[in-house]
Amino acid sequence: MTRIAVVLPAYNEEETLAATIAGFHSALPSASIWVVNNRSTDRTEAIAAETIRKLKCSGE
């Protein structure tokens, strides 16, 4: 079985991150999506965690 991981680097992406994650999840529904937060000073980390949890697309 092939497994796919999408790794998204992010820095202050609160405006677009949820839509980006959702787009990858729509195109690759069985992929694990990982966001690498590069010390953002906005809500990037919280939005990533919330979106991944809601879509159930984490690598865990």
Rank of each mutant, 00 (worst) to 15 (best):
M1N: 08
T2M: 05
R3M: 07
R3Q: 12
I4D: 02
V6Q: 01
V7E: 03
L8T: 12
L8G: 04
P9I: 08
A10E: 04
Y11Q: 06
E13M: 09
E14M: 04
E14A: 10
L17K: 02
A18F: 07
A18W: 04
A19T: 09
A19K: 11
T20K: 14
T20G: 12
I21D: 06
I21N: 05
A22H: 05
A22Y: 06
F24I: 13
H25I: 03
S26G: 09
S26P: 00
A27F: 03
A27N: 02
A27C: 03
L28K: 05
L28I: 12
L28S: 03
P29S: 09
P29C: 08
S30Y: 00
A31R: 10
A31V: 14
A31C: 07
I33Y: 02
V36A: 11
N38E: 13
N38T: 03
N38C: 11
R39H: 07
S40D: 08
T41I: 06
T41H: 05
T41Q: 08
D42S: 09
R43F: 00
T44F: 07
E45V: 07
A48T: 04
A49S: 15
A49M: 14
E50L: 12
I52P: 01
I52V: 15
R53A: 15
R53C: 10
R53I: 06
L55C: 11
K56R: 15
K56A: 15
C57L: 10
C57I: 13
S58E: 14
G59D: 15
E60R: 14
